[in-house]
Structures are given as structure tokens and as C-alpha cells.
Design a protein around this nucleic acid. Sequence first.
DNA 1: CATGAATGAGCGTTCATTCAT
DNA 2: CATGAATGAACGCTCATTCAT
Lengths: 197, 197, 197, 197
Amino acid sequence: MNNKQVLNKRQRIINGAIAVFSRKGFYKATIEEIAEQADVGKGTVYEYFSSKKELFQEMFLYTEEKYEEMFHRGLSDAVMFQDKLQKMFQITMRFLNCHKEMAQILLAGYPPVAEDIQKVLIGKNQQNITKISKILEEAITRQEIRPVDTGAAAKVILGTLFFVGGQVLFSEDEKESGFNLLAQNVVDIILQGLLLT
Amino acid sequence: MNNKQVLNKRQRIINGAIAVFSRKGFYKATIEEIAEQADVGKGTVYEYFSSKKELFQEMFLYTEEKYEEMFHRGLSDAVMFQDKLQKMFQITMRFLNCHKEMAQILLAGYPPVAEDIQKVLIGKNQQNITKISKILEEAITRQEIRPVDTGAAAKVILGTLFFVGGQVLFSEDEKESGFNLLAQNVVDIILQGLLLT
Amino acid sequence: MNNKQVLNKRQRIINGAIAVFSRKGFYKATIEEIAEQADVGKGTVYEYFSSKKELFQEMFLYTEEKYEEMFHRGLSDAVMFQDKLQKMFQITMRFLNCHKEMAQILLAGYPPVAEDIQKVLIGKNQQNITKISKILEEAITRQEIRPVDTGAAAKVILGTLFFVGGQVLFSEDEKESGFNLLAQNVVDIILQGLLLT
Amino acid sequence: MNNKQVLNKRQRIINGAIAVFSRKGFYKATIEEIAEQADVGKGTVYEYFSSKKELFQEMFLYTEEKYEEMFHRGLSDAVMFQDKLQKMFQITMRFLNCHKEMAQILLAGYPPVAEDIQKVLIGKNQQNITKISKILEEAITRQEIRPVDTGAAAKVILGTLFFVGGQVLFSEDEKESGFNLLAQNVVDIILQGLLLT
DNA sequence: CATGAATGAGCGTTCATTCAT
DNA sequence: CATGAATGAACGCTCATTCAT
């Protein structure tokens, strides 16, 4: 039970951090407000995280992890590349819509925070590119798609994913149906291209 | 001449702001450093801008404007949609590479700054979508491209543009040739899509 | 045995306090580090001492006591005043050199700690003066030394003792021979004075 | 006049620092109280001193300087060594009595402050020893005193000076006559020694 | 008795903003 | 108009002390 309590407290702080950081951004967020949100004392935050920066990083990693879990679980049963791409967008849209607070943090691609935090973000991006590239290579091997530059294609996909994600996030009307249609149209373009054939 | 001097001073402050804000981000940047950079007194900044936030907004608008100018000029002599898309990427890459400082600000799509600044950024994005959409509609009318959802297509283009832009910006090696190849590959995918035909 | 354990724990805390207070000074020292050093829980310190301040005072008293013990034992077999003075310096130097940690605390004559701690230190100083004065009076009675103002003489002796002690403590080279020579020269001056006779 | 104002403000802060640091010691003193004492805003302190530590050091140096000035002026017309020694004590006592606040700082020989501050204090002490040693060498050359170990003698003098100084400082009764008598007796002992001749 | 997780008062420091010159 | 000295609100972080277990 003791162990459980500890986990609970750390988790509560992370949750408070997600709420406050995404509402206010790194600099406007105050440790005091995060502590209040988590219903713990200000000092307690420092029992679990050595600094505001570390708390931000840990929270970011945690958020990323959650997203990746959902991502993997969602893609696991898709075999064809088309399905995979479709799923990517659907999952991302749903995730963003359900976890708006976390989402803003994921999407703030290059926030002007301290340099070492930026490095973490850039690194994460690189990993994402690699991951998508692998999926693309596989699809090429299976002759599902054209033998394109996988790095470039990964960037088209991720860029679109993030941009559309941002749109969803900051749009006022939040109907899932709308998101799904948007996702479908976007996927269609990435798959078919724009040109008349 | 007096008038000219005033313009000069305002401009110098804007330039200082571009330099410092993009190097340090909104919160780490200090009015003092901007004033130094502009070679004016700290108080003088407040003669031309009522607050740090306003200075940021004005600077952002100015930067956007510069980018748009270059954008329009670059696209003006392209007739075919393919050329236009190609140019978009080339111009953007070149702009980012030449004005790295400004660029970071343009790319920080959803920076966690004060809310009212965010609104400006979101609005700007909306305008960009509309602009690209118009170009797409035109291309559809001319039967250059498939009759796709122009909003969705605009998002693919802009998302890719921004994402690739970010990549260019934060990559260490800065060879134009590399950027151009990347731009070409990316444009190819957007135009042709991924599927085997 | 229970009783013994208690004494052990109290003593361990005192020893931890000596180590940490003298290494870091009163304010930089933390209860946590003292507890660690003593290998007890942080809360346990408060079972034996009601506050950081009290711990400091108790530790100081303990240290003083140890010094005085050594002092008395060392002087016990000296009969002549000259021998006594010589011993005083030798004992003090040796004590300082062996217990550098404790020593700093003894020598911090007027440390800017909380007022009530200062009072204790001042009181201790007064006692020292009285003690030396008695020895001097005795020596005068025995006609070993001139009938000087014993209070003044005690201050010369103690002042020199402390000052030279500080020198020894903060000097890098720690050869006993050097200390002994210094002690001898200093004692010579106090005994013979400076004037040509 | 502008220049004068600036000097005034810096000086006011130094004076506030002297008052508060000597009343409370380094750690208990707060910048806020120093600022209040100096009748300036808290931020203003940081216009003139980059940190609490720097303020302390500057204040210390200033205090030392004042003392040394008085010291030199006082000794300048003394020719014989006996007179010089007498003056040293008289001047020091008077200084301490007049500037009790500053004095505590000068006397806190080895206060447990941050290490780099301690280095400054130890260095200052070394200088004092050298200075007194020179005076002693001169006196030896002139055959005014015995050819003693000047380093040792300097330590006797300084140690006594500081110790007696501390006594004066923390004694409640503050009659100059008392101090002068004490000074005289102490000087007598240092000059004549304790032994019957 | 022993513990250490939890707490919050308190302080050093920064910096946007003001205003007297 | 231009300046920069002055300001104080605000925040990150520390650590003595408490108390539930």
C-alpha cells in the first residue's frame, strides 16, 4: 500500500504537470499551481522531481509513451499499408481529441524552452521519422507502394499528421465525424497524390 | 529626416527583437538585450511598443509579411501547379536557410506563449490554408490536378512544408543541394502519391 | 542494553553534527546530512534534540568538554608556570591538529549564528579567562611571574592561543614540528616580552 | 550631481549591509532587510551588487579599508615601537567601540560562510601578520626590542588584539577609560613579558 | 522508539515596466 | 523624444520541522 501511495503521488504530480504545462506552457506554469492541481505541497514536487525542467521532461516522456502505446496497439492488426496509414491518422486524431491537454505538448514541435529540453524534442522527432520510414520500407518491399525516398515520405506523413493534429486541437467544433472525414481525405491525398492520372 | 529617424529606430528594435526572440525564445529574451541589440535605450523600446508581448506580435507580423512577400514574388512567374508547388518548397527552404533567426519564430507553430499571442498564430495559419486552397482550386479548375478536398490538400502541403522546414532549421549540415533534393522528393510524393499505379 | 543503545544513538548524532557543522558551518549544514552521517533517520535527530540550534549547542558543549578534559589532563603534572604555559600551547596545537573538525567550531570565536548561541560562546570565553586567570594568580603567589593584571594576561594568552590555533588550522602544511617551534616562540615572547633587558 | 546620487545609493546599501550583516550574520541577514535599511527597493541592491555574497565581500573590504586608514593615520606619528604598540591597541579599541557594527564583521575571523569568502578573510589575516612583522623587524633593527621570531610575535600581538577586541565588543559596559586601562595592561605584558627579571 | 514522506514558510534573484531627468 | 536607474511582484527552490505509520 505504501508503494501504491508513492506511485499515486508521483502520478498525481505528473497529471498536474500535464494539466498546467499544456494550459500555460513551460514558463507561465508555476510549480505552486502544479502542486495545487496535484493536491500536494509545493515541496513535495521536489521530492519526486529535482527541478521544474526535469518535471517537464519526465511528463513529456510519459505523454509520448502513452501516445506510442496507443499508436502501436492501434497499428498492430493492420496489415496493408493503406490500413496502417489510415489508422495512424485515426488514432492520432482520437488521441488528440481525448487528451487535448497532453496533445498540445506533443504538438508544440519546437517550443522555445531551454535548449536541453529542445534537444529531447528534436531527438523524439528523429525517432518518429525512423519509425515511419521503416513502415514505408516494408511496404515498398511488399510492393504495396512506389519505391519512393522513404525519409521524404515519412516527413510528408508526419508533417501532415502534426499539422492536422494542431488544427483539430485548436478548432472549436470537436465532432469526431469531422475529424474522420478530414483524416480520410488527407490519407487519400498522400496515397494517390494530387495529379490526374 | 526626423520621421526617417523614427522609422529607423522602430525598425532597429524589430530587428533586435527578431535576433533575440529567435535565439532565446519569448520568455528567455529580455527587453534589455533587445534594446542593446538595437542600440537604443531600454526605455525607448516602450516608446514604440507598449509591452514585450506587443513587440513580439509586431515582430511576428513583420516576419510573416517578409516571408509572404518573398513567397508571392517567387510564385508570380510560375503558371503550372507543379511549378508552383516546387517553388513553394524551394522558396521556403531558401528563406529558412537565409533567415534562420526569423524562421524559428514562423515555425513554432503552437508555441506555449500567452494565449492571445497564440490566437494570432492560429489565425495566421488559417489564412495560409485559405491561400493554398485557392491555388489548389485554381489548379483543379484548370484540370491540372484531381478534384480533391482542397482544405485537406492544403493541410498536407502546409504540414509538410512546416515539418520539413523544421528539419532543415535544426539540422546541423546546411547544404542547399541537400535541401533541394529533399524538396524535390517531397513534392514528388505530394504530387504522385505513394501508391503504385 | 536498551539504555546503552540510546546513548549510542545520541552520541552518533553528536559525532555526525561535529563532522557536518565543522565542514559546512551552521547554516550550510543540514539535519538530513547529519542524520545520514550518524546513520539514523532524519526524524530520530528530533527525538534527542529539539532543534538544529539545540543540537549545535549540545555539540559545542560536548566539544568544549573534550578539549577541557585533555587540557586538564595535560596540565596536571606541570608544576612550574612556564611548563604549564608551554603545555597549554602544545596541547592545544595537538588537539587542533588531531580534531580539525571540532577545532573549527571552538575557534569560530564569534560566529554570526543566532544570538542565543552567541551568548553561550561568549560565556564559555569568560570561563576560559577566569580559568587562566586563576593559574596566573597562583603563579604570582608563588612568585614565578610578575604581579601583572591577571585578566589582561589571560587575554594575551587566550588571544594568542586562538589566533595561532586558527593559523594552524587553516594552514596547508601540517607538520607537528612546525607547530611546536611556533608554540615555543610564542610562549617565549609571552614569558620574556619583547623589550631588550 | 548624478554621479553623487549614484555614490550615495551604493554607499547607502553598503551601510545597510554593515548594519544588517553585523546584527544578524551572513545567513540570517536578508537582502530585503538590507534594502529597507538603505531605503531602496530590493531590486536596486542588484543594480549595484551582483549577489548577496558579492555585497558581503564588498562591504567587508570597505570596512577593512576604513579600519586600515584609521590604523595608518594613528600610527603615523608614533616613532618608538612602544608607542606604536600602544597606539595599535588604543586605535583598535576606539574603532571597535565607535563602529561596533563593522567591528563584529572584522572580528568574526573564521565565520562559517561560503568558502570563497573565507579565503578572502584568511588572506586579509595573512596581510595583517606581514604588516606587523615588518614593524617588528624595523624595531629589531633599531634595537628597540629583542631579536625575536617576528612571525610569532606578530601572532601574539594580533591574537591579543582580536581577542581583547572581541571582549570589548561584547561587553555591556562601554567606558573608554576601562578600555584604555586594559589596552595599557595588555601592552605592558606583551612588552615586558610575564617573568620576574 | 524510529522513521522519512510531506509540508510550506522564507529567501535570493530576475526582469517587465515606470518615470524623473 | 530618449534614457536607464529604480522598483517590486513573482517564482524556483531549500530545508527545518512534523506526524502518521
